[in-house]
Structures are given as C-alpha cells and as structure tokens.
Design a binder for these strands. Sequence first.
DNA 1: CCTTGACCTTCCAGTAACTGGAGGCCCTAT
DNA 2: ATAGGGCCTCCAGTTACTGGAAGGTCAAGG
Lengths: 128, 128
Amino acid sequence: MNIGQVAKSSGIPVKTIRYYEEIGFIRPDRDANGYRNFDDRDLHKLAFIGRARSLGFTIEECRALLALYEDQSRASADVKRLAMDHLKDIDAKIAALKSMRDTLSDLVTSCAGDDRPDCPILNDLAGR
Amino acid sequence: MNIGQVAKSSGIPVKTIRYYEEIGFIRPDRDANGYRNFDDRDLHKLAFIGRARSLGFTIEECRALLALYEDQSRASADVKRLAMDHLKDIDAKIAALKSMRDTLSDLVTSCAGDDRPDCPILNDLAGR
DNA sequence: CCTTGACCTTCCAGTAACTGGAGGCCCTAT
DNA sequence: ATAGGGCCTCCAGTTACTGGAAGGTCAAGG
C-alpha cells in the first residue's frame, strides 16, 4: 500500500507518516522504485499511534505504549500507571487553562468594548 | 538595574528577559561594561508581558496588546476582541482536553492494573 | 596583587511534533 | 511527447524558550 493510500485511510498526513518512520515507529518495505510499501502491521501501528496521540500521549509515551502492546508478558499495571500519569498531566493542564479562562473571562466582562480607550483588560495587564 | 535583579523582582528568568530583548519587546540601555541597564519602563513592560503570558496570550498577541496599551487613542473594543478570541482558543483547548480526559479516565477505570497482561487501554488503542 | 565566586556577555544548539517547500524521479493517460 | 499527480529526499521553519560553552567584570578576602 502506498503512502497516499495509507494517509487517506488512516487520517494521518503523508508528512507525519514519513516522520513516524524517521523516528523509528515503522519500517515499511520499499518497492523497486523506492516507494514505501506498507503492510497490515504498519497500518495497525499507525492506527495505534494515531489513537494514542489523539488522547494526548506524547511521542515518547506512544513509544512506551507500543512497546507494552508488543510485549506479551507485560503487566496491565504498567500500562495503567502510564495512563494515570498522563491523566494527571491532562488534569493539571485543564486546571491551568480554567484558571486562565476565569480571570480572562472576568476581564472581558468588565471591558466595555466600545470606541473609548479606557480598558480594564489593559489596566490589569499593566498591574493597575 | 541589572538583569539578575530584574529577573528576581519580576519572576521572569534571565534567559527569557534576554530573549524578550532579542524579539524586540524591550531595548534596555547598556552600561560601559556592556551590562544591560533596565529602567522603570522596561520593568513595566516586562511585568505586562509576564502577566499576559500567564493568561496564555502568545508572544504575538502580547505584541499586539502592548501596542494597544501604548496607543493612547486605541478603542477598548480592539482589546476586547483580542481577549475574546483568545478566550475562545482557551475554551477550545479545555474542551479538547476534557474529551481526552473523559475517554482516558474510562479506560483507566476499566483496567485492572494488576500483573496480568490483559489491558483494555491497549485494546482500545489497538482499535479492538 | 591575586584569586575566587558570582555576576554578566555572546553565540550556538536543542526542545516537541510536525509542516512547508524546493528540486527531482516515476507512472499513467492522452 | 507531455501533462498530471504521486512519490522521493533534504532543508528550513514553527513556539517560546532553555541549556551550555567560552569568556569578560566586579567585589571581597588573603
């Protein structure tokens, strides 16, 4: 299967697939003309990575997850720990964003948003 | 005022302050020995930027905000629009993270996390 | 006077995860 | 033969810093 087809069917951009090869996630065969030729295993891995990335796992976490996935003797506890750590990261990010959102939302509300120059948002940023 | 002092009093790392100079936010004077010498205006700007950054505005947004701040004839509507756009970005990020969090949280809950290899998290990632 | 340590300087490289573009080969259809 | 689309590699750029090397400066202590 050519890279274009894989991109279309997996939803992962061509460039990204090449990048994933470059960082060692996949090692597709090459045809005589140098074109990459993906097999089911490659497709499967790409789908795995795509799904993990969509859940916010970093590339390195994906690498770890993939290794666990391919290790038949893994303990699910190891996977769970990884996922829980990531969950904690996500929660921290959400909390940080919410705090920004609350402050910013207050500021936006307090700003008239008309053609006069006086602006509580700028005043806040300026520490006044 | 030396860069170290500015860093301490503003909470912005020395490296970051130099970077902010490099990208044109500030233009501190230099002493005879080449050391940067920050005045109140620089301090004020740095505080402004630091606050805006802590609210998640990008560097380019900070630049725009700073320009509005220094433009006495600005309309508060322009500031408000910028802030509202940013608020929308934040909300989108929060929504995306929440969706990740929910999915991931379900997966974590469904995983026994013991020494057996069977793992719903990996199964999900593998599309099963 | 010399050394030591804490400052400060510049410049270069690296981070995360792609993304865009240039230059060029390959394949198929007209 | 040529036009188009798909494929290839390699290089550079993105965001906002951050780390480190190599070296100048300054104040205090011996």
